[in-house]
Design a protein around this nucleic acid. Structure first.
Length: 297
DNA sequence: TCACGTCAAGCAGAT
DNA sequence: ATCTGCTTGACGTGA
């Protein structure tokens, strides 16, 4: 079991998700921002290594506007060495990284323009992981997408679109259950049609499910991960009490996390701690999990 | 230096 | 019809 956190480190001064306005785009601006972001990513990964954090989600803003037509600069070749260095460090530490393209990536959209832009965005995320020289356990995680008043038809459209994707994308893509539209059951259906692995999001599952126990849920999604996909991934978070359902808690609830570990102890998986205070809760989770024999840290 | 309106993009659900 | 939230605040103009 590896434990990690998404995108931002609040202890360090630097940020790997610096961006700028589209209107102020220039190749120079892009170069400067990407250099900053990659340097900071290195610092975050070094921090993680020192603290036994072996899992990390890389921000989608690493290369701002990478999939936008305005960006013609060959950032791939310009930063080739740097990407490779980051990837070498990840590998040397036995770490795993993932990415999570945003809400605008909708593979099953009825609008072909949206679909095509989504493919471009997925291509960018995969390119970053490829440039780092990482194996196929470095995943790109998205939701199934829109419902358009017909969930079955729309999840079917996702499956059809997925099958036609370039293998470069297909081999890294994984889908995650969400709290409104597509439950674990829907994701497993899509996985059955396509072979895509399923990330299990605990908070989303608590908000939208089909009555499965935690054990049944794990027995469902774990087998969707094949050897080359690496260890199955779980997004762990808890509800921010008193706030809108689905809002992530400010910090880890140690008791809930320990209960969760206990309830799932027969399974091997990596955990992304989706908690607002980022690395702080990840470090606490690692402490708690260290008492558990499964933890590789 | 700071306040605050706006920021590439889609969709669903609430207001 | 308009606003809010998503993984989430930060950019950048104007005073």
């Amino acid at each position: 079991m590896r434990i990690g956190y998404p995108c931002i480190n609040r202890t360090l001064e630097c940020r790997s998700n610096r961006t700028f306005r589209l209107k102020s785009y220039s190749d120079e601006r892009l170069k400067e921002t990407v250099k900053n972001n990659l340097d900071c990513l290195s610092k975050i990964l070094e921090f993680n290594a020192e603290n036994n954090v072996l899992f990390f989600r890389i921000t989608s803003d690493l290369v701002p506007f990478a999939s936008h037509p305005v960006c013609r600069f060959p950032w791939q070749s310009h930063f080739e060495e740097k990407f490779k260095d980051v990837g070498d460090f990840v590998k040397s530490q036995g770490m795993r990284v993932s990415t999570h393209p945003g809400q605008y990536t909708v593979l099953n959209s009825r609008d072909m323009g949206v679909f095509e832009r989504s493919v471009g965005e997925l291509f960018y995320h995969c390119e970053v992981l490829d440039l780092m020289g990482l194996d196929l356990s470095a995943k790109v995680q998205i939701h199934v997408g829109g419902v358009y008043k017909d969930r079955e038809l729309s999840r079917e459209r996702f499956a059809e679109r997925f099958c036609k994707l370039d293998d470069l994308i297909k081999r890294r893509l994984v889908i995650e259950n969400d709290e409104k539209s597509y439950s674990l059951e829907d994701c497993l259906w899509v996985s059955d049609q396509t072979g895509v692995p399923v990330v299990f999001d605990l908070l989303h599952h608590r908000l939208k499910n089909n009555g499965e126990s935690l054990k049944e849920a794990f027995e469902g999604f774990i087998p969707t991960w094949k050897e080359r996909d690496g260890t199955p991934i779980v997004d762990y978070s808890t509800q921010d009490m008193g706030k809108r359902p689905g809002k992530h808690a400010e910090s880890i609830d140690p008791l809930d996390f320990q209960e969760f570990l206990e309830a799932t102890r027969q399974f091997d998986f990596d955990v992304m701690m989706e908690i607002k205070d980022k690395e702080r809760s990840a470090l606490r989770a690692i402490e708690l999990a260290s008492e558990n024999v499964r933890f590789r840290g």
